[in-house]
Nucleic acid binder design. Sequence first.
DNA 1: TAGCGGGTTGCATTTTGTGCACCCCCTATT
DNA 2: AATAGGGGGTGCACAAAATGCAACCCGCTA
Lengths: 271, 271
Amino acid sequence: MADEPPSSLRRALALLDALASDDAVAQGGWGVNRLAAHQGRDKSQVSRTLRILADAGYVERDAESMTYRIGWHVFALAARAADQRLLAAGAPIIRRLVEKDLGERIHLSVLQGNEVLTLLTETPPHAVQTVAWAGRLVPAHNTSSGRALLIDLERDELDRLFAGVRFDVGGPNAPRNIEDLNQRIVLARRRGYATVDEEFEPGLVAAAAPVRDFRGEVIAALNVSAPKFRLGARLPFAGQQIKAAADELSTQLGWDGLRHRSLAARSAVPA
Amino acid sequence: MADEPPSSLRRALALLDALASDDAVAQGGWGVNRLAAHQGRDKSQVSRTLRILADAGYVERDAESMTYRIGWHVFALAARAADQRLLAAGAPIIRRLVEKDLGERIHLSVLQGNEVLTLLTETPPHAVQTVAWAGRLVPAHNTSSGRALLIDLERDELDRLFAGVRFDVGGPNAPRNIEDLNQRIVLARRRGYATVDEEFEPGLVAAAAPVRDFRGEVIAALNVSAPKFRLGARLPFAGQQIKAAADELSTQLGWDGLRHRSLAARSAVPA
DNA sequence: TAGCGGGTTGCATTTTGTGCACCCCCTATT
DNA sequence: AATAGGGGGTGCACAAAATGCAACCCGCTA
């Protein structure tokens, strides 16, 4: 890191960082003086800079306490760029998984209804291929990607999603009904990754883990699949590798590792 | 909205907005020239500003295409910007509304000036959804979410908020002026939920109810929207469902069902 | 009433951002 | 091999914006 010359823009951005600091968040935002002290700047210019940031929606002010916090506009930016970033940040992670960690085929996919749409694929000898938005759909219930994507869903939500879906397709070990599927999802939830063993196709095993965005929502899944004779024995290891990579990708999307939906549901409201 | 005087900071932030635009995202990011043209600025300064933003992590550059896109830092900030309680408690409720109660698209949104910013969107599984609404701004006066968010405002406050806003956009039944809007808000206030019938778009109906925090202040709105031929007949029912869910969410945020805005004004201090 | 914490504004100063011209690099085209 | 054009970066003189100090407003309280 070369020592960056200061600039007004850099100083303005530093204000955002300060407002996103643990202390500032914990205290429900900071006022002009506190912020100026923290940044070692004069309060006047901090006041003026904040007004510009507030006009643009990057910060907002609590009317009563006069404190500033990060504004909704930042949220809007992130939400709109999330998909783009998923692909951009996913590609190198997938490449690394293929080349170094696992040496088997890796996919990045999203949920489309009750099916799984693959966005990125990389096979050991080849390069990353971006499958266009009209890629092939596979079922969600008998694939590891699918179960990773469903990992936060409760039983009743599964009922609704899979109402009318036929479970009599796929490999020999595919789930036979929704309850069966639910139990396998519960297992995946406990372990943090999903596995399938000859469910989608005979002779094929796979592991997958969910990718979460900055809201904690599951938005995609990373998965590895390979012939059972090659990957079968080390499937748990592969699952952990995939989970680690998925968490890394989630982190790059702003996930802080705390907001699980399953947790959010029951932890009501701390001060 | 008064014309804000330009400032270098404002111009820098505008670059971020441009990078989050539909076009830029769809094209995998924009290069310096394209950005400069879009902003009507000289490419030299755009280049320099982007370097600062890149150093700070607010944008990042694709090594091959040389295009910039929104960077990890924005996602990190967004994780803070999202009101954790609102989103954490809101997600499961929205999910339930989609899966069980209504089976149509549900949004959670907040007021941003006189527009509505959508934070969470949940789509029923059968519908093909390509447009991501999260992070998008829509008008407040001709949407049900907007009217739910404005439900506590008095006539004079509406005058101030919508001064200078053009009412000649939207669907066939959109309010034609502020008085018209006010009457529809009064109706929503009496019923506890707002509805629109082909106001925002032809063929679209929607219902929304306000979410209140512990002070009784309206901080968000839950809303359902669907094609008229599907939801039109049971719109009042949907409105009541939405209201029940919004009240439940409000309760989880500490609302006791009694406090209203008049009281909230003087009950100051948040913890 | 004076003092204090917190915030904003006026204004002279100067740092910064700006735009122009120019240069680099790559790749089609002739 | 020469050339044109797209995309991106840099040097420099100039104008504009940020800066910091002091003054001021406001509400609170000792």
